[in-house]
Design a protein around this nucleic acid. Structure first.
Lengths: 334, 334
DNA sequence: TTGTACGCGTTATCAT
DNA sequence: ATGATAACGCGTACAA
């Protein structure tokens, strides 16, 4: 990399053409003879020329870079969200690459509205793809209000203005509930956190399905405050000590499901025999955990490409509509 | 974002100073009165001014952006490497942010030497942090030869020229071997892939420890071709069918360990009673899996900051020496 | 089809 | 301590 940087001017000189011609040749502008184009490309290749993308970005309006926002904090140490969002990240990465967009991984310093807006104003990125909504609905709404281009992976209510792509959370919950009703479960526990819109939607779907039952069902919620494995485990253990054991459990994620199962195990309870449990996301480990997890699946690859597609559409000011990814019940050993 | 972009010129005019003064004021240059600095900052804040970073990058030599290379392909679908590298990613992200460096997530198109070099030549990034060495030793060597700044998470041999930060793989393997010897294991199986330098080092450490035993030990290797969970499971199941069961197993990752345990389970074998098993990485799930995994731990947070520190050092042309992160045996239920 | 001239927004150099 | 000026490398308007 020590070799002095070659510029477009140099290429122009070496190819005996003008600078704009080089620019045109490289960008596939039709107004250039096939002959000169080849000459230019040859010179460029030979000298290992690469366009200075900062100069280009300065000149052009957009950066062709998208910030992807990941909530690392929930993936630290003992904290364990599902590796699910990394599958999503992989999908987004691929979809962006196809469109020649760079992916800037958002720094942990990105917290308030201003920090987000600055990133766009300083022309670092064109906008944001948020992988995970968490309890940030208000923040995202405000950004959207300020015309910061963004697309969010998450849930949507009637007054969600920004564009979302998300699992069909309500359906996912409904499918879980259906399984419980079919199996005549009488005491259903929902494990989640009502601050998260997505999780609320799953709960609502669950309840809706439970209401279709022709018998009485007890419904309980176990609110999880922090996202550590141990806090899941302990909350569940405490519940089991204090009260009767539920015969049906729907957890907001597979990982949460695993923690809960550990507690059920210690309490001497067995899947299917004593309880049904349904997780969410169908992460790779779910099918290899013991017991093999029954769960709700969604297509993360599709999700990634949809997120990117919508984002591009947002950039072009065509208010794209939000989308929902189908969910499907995967029945295994719980 | 529709509001017309404010430039440094505008700020200068509004603050009644010259453009360079604004630049100095913003960048903390000492050659500017506290008074004028405050005036400038006030105007900038008031009008929501943000430096155009592309213009800055064009003018300056460096981009303050680092490409982080992740092998997504090994995290797709059924493929499951440990979520370990995501912990690493979180660490690197944080460490970069502290140094005001942007993190560009490398596109999947990054494959050959030229694609890497182009990213630097086109002034998109200053260099690379590779999270995972895989079988790319030769590629990385070549890049290093070409003076492409890079630091690699991985193993190191005597003729590794580029700078690496990595787990003390040899020690990790040695610790595993020690436990086996202490427990008088007689039939040791190593599960790994000898194409990966890191995994070879772990195997070598393991063997070294086994050699200290004062009794005979059988040593076997189970080569894993692809990184799918099922291929791990099936390879192990096949081995158990064909031959006697090993009483000690060292797997190259926790996830691999889980797959292997599943196979052992199906074969009716129980941990501690029938076999000892040691994984690698101590991922969050390891302590919650059933049985709770005995494993080798390393500090990923330290790893991230060390990677970034070394990278900065590489940029400054001070050939930093490679580093090794201590490994530690975490004894649990296997 | 190709070339000339200019501007994108910043920082560096030099002068004051 | 501050200001005038140039230069970074590219794409675009316009002219030829």
């Amino acid at each position: 990399m020590r070799k002095k940087q070659i510029t477009m001017d140099d290429v122009a000189r070496l190819a005996n053409v003008s600078k704009p011609t080089v620019s045109r040749a490289l960008s596939g502008n039709p107004n250039v003879t096939e002959q000169t184009r080849e000459k230019v490309l040859a010179v460029a290749r030979e000298h290992g020329y690469a366009v200075n993308r900062n100069a280009r970005k300065l000149r052009e309006k957009h950066t062709n870079t998208v910030a992807v926002v990941l909530d690392f904090s929930s993936h630290r140490r003992d904290r364990i969200s599902d590796p699910f969002i990394y599958e999503l990240l992989a999908g987004v990465s691929e979809a962006l690459s196809v469109r020649n967009q760079d992916l800037l991984l958002s720094p942990p310093t990105l917290t308030n509205v201003d920090s987000y807006r600055d990133l766009v104003m300083s022309r670092v990125v064109d906008g944001f793809i948020m992988l995970g909504q968490g309890a940030n609905d208000a923040l995202f709404s405000e950004l959207h209000e300020l015309n910061v281009p963004l697309v969010v992976w998450g849930g949507k209510t009637d007054d969600t203005e920004y564009c979302t792509v998300g699992s069909d959370n309500f359906l996912g919950g409904y499918l879980a509930g259906e399984r419980f009703v079919t199996n005549k479960c009488k005491d259903v526990l929902y494990v989640g956190n009502s601050e998260h819109l997505e999780l609320r939607l799953r709960r609502d779907g669950l309840r809706k399905a439970l209401n279709t039952a022709h018998y009485d069902i007890k419904f309980r919620e176990l609110e999880i405050e922090d996202f550590s494995f141990s806090s899941h485990f302990e909350s569940m253990a405490r519940l089991l000590k204090k009260s009767s054991a539920p015969d049906a459990i729907f957890t907001y994620s597979d990982t949460a499901g695993m923690a809960v199962i550990n507690a059920l195990n210690e309490h001497g309870l067995e899947p299917i025999k004593d309880y049904f449990l349904i997780g969410y996301n169908d992460i790779a480990q779910a099918s290899h955990f013991s017991p093999r997890l029954t769960t709700i699946r969604q297509d993360t690859f599709l999700a990634g490409s949809l997120l990117v597609e919508k984002f591009m559409s947002v950039l072009n000011k065509n208010n794209p509509t939000s989308s929902t990814i189908p969910t499907e019940l995967i029945v295994r050993g719980t």
